[in-house]
Design a protein around this nucleic acid. Sequence first.
DNA 1: CGGATCATTGATACTAGTCAAGTCACGTGG
DNA 2: CCACGTGACTTGACTAGTATCAATGATCCG
Lengths: 257, 257
Amino acid sequence: MTSLNKITDFRRPVAINLANRPTASSCDDCGARRHGLCDALSDDEVGFLARAAQHVSLQPNTVFIEEGEAALYFYNINSGNVRLFKSLPDGRRQITGFAGPGHFLGLAATTKNMFSAETMEPVKLCRFSRSSIAAVFEEFPVLERKLLDVAMHELVLSQQQMLLLGRKTAIERIASFLLSWAERLEICASGALPKPNVSMPLPLSRTDLADYLGLTIETVSRSLSNLKREGLIDIPNIHEIILLRPQALSDIAEAAV
Amino acid sequence: MTSLNKITDFRRPVAINLANRPTASSCDDCGARRHGLCDALSDDEVGFLARAAQHVSLQPNTVFIEEGEAALYFYNINSGNVRLFKSLPDGRRQITGFAGPGHFLGLAATTKNMFSAETMEPVKLCRFSRSSIAAVFEEFPVLERKLLDVAMHELVLSQQQMLLLGRKTAIERIASFLLSWAERLEICASGALPKPNVSMPLPLSRTDLADYLGLTIETVSRSLSNLKREGLIDIPNIHEIILLRPQALSDIAEAAV
DNA sequence: CGGATCATTGATACTAGTCAAGTCACGTGG
DNA sequence: CCACGTGACTTGACTAGTATCAATGATCCG
């Protein structure tokens, strides 16, 4: 807690501008209308919700939630992906997760943000003030149920990630990540393996990958090269991975004995 | 997912026995009556809740939730502490958190348990079947609000733990842990430092500590010895730590620059 | 007192980090 | 169209921090 204002000393983000307001005031064509929270509401209810929201467009690499700052807003992402992370004063960074369309951010019942959030691509989101959200919950208790479901799932994911960060080797982390990423992209069902030879976009940079998996970019690169050399994956280009042998990846990821 | 049934091959737990039923059918003298979920309810409501619950007493080191098993029950802890963990087939273990009186376990909306839970001491808890809980939520929507608050706080804690596991050195992990443990014991307010020279019980074994911090017991022991040699802590006995210089600990924990 | 268990300390090994050089892809401008 | 520059990635050589292996010490309990 000593000097959190320093955490952006490196990797300086694009200056934030939340002033540029509504582009789409209707929710009908919103990318998140059928996802996440809004999916739990009727059209009328979403209309009510929309009147409490400000619609914001953000450029790539914009930090719109900064750890330690006053938590004035909640956010519901409409389009684009963001990374969530925590940093140490000396610049070390841990990405704790990713959030896409339908994800709801900033709900912790604290007055300060407990993590930072940065766009990875152009992002559109709805912003709610903390005061307005209380009324929304009052109006739609179903939202709490929905948020509880989401939060429990996030907890499951973070427990998996703790096992990965605390106990897995570099190659196990990479293999685990590739399979969980396939699940996230819905290339395969939760808990199931993708079919051999499926191709998968990987929009993350090696730096993001390293900061998510608790490794360095060099180790990430070497581990990917190893998996490629062993014929478990192919890497046609930086942002695409082909899972040649998912079962073998799984054996590594789960340390099968 | 290859051979989860092997995870208890070592560290074999005491055989579980959930058959020994009610000791206290009244909630009045329950250790959790003024904590966690039950604190959010009136006496009448708790009475209703109690009729849906089975009261269970467990011996120390009893695994009562096993990862991969069918998730038939929810649990509310009344007294005693438990460790939550995930394991790899070769025995590596990551403790993902601890739960005490008032904590609610097993809520994830999956049909299989996504983690294991083991008592650390004699534990009393209330057990609810998954079917009964739906009715309870129907009856008391306030519980969902409460659970959401708890879940969000758990998420904050697990993000902190991910930063620790992914990016902190051994000595930083130990220093961070000692301060967060002081917070958990309410020796100091959340985010604040304890006063110098406060004594703190540490009921964890070195093995638990290592499995929680992603280290080995040897590294835990060495790091504690270092902190003692440097005069930041004292260790009068294995299960007690005196925080001589909390500010210095914090400087290490947060990597102050 | 003896044995078991857990913790500490020491010596060594190994994984992943650091430092540095080289490669590749891409966009710009001559 | 190609030279150049930039940034991201890969690969190699070496180092450092933590794990592993092993021995010793402390504590508890019968």
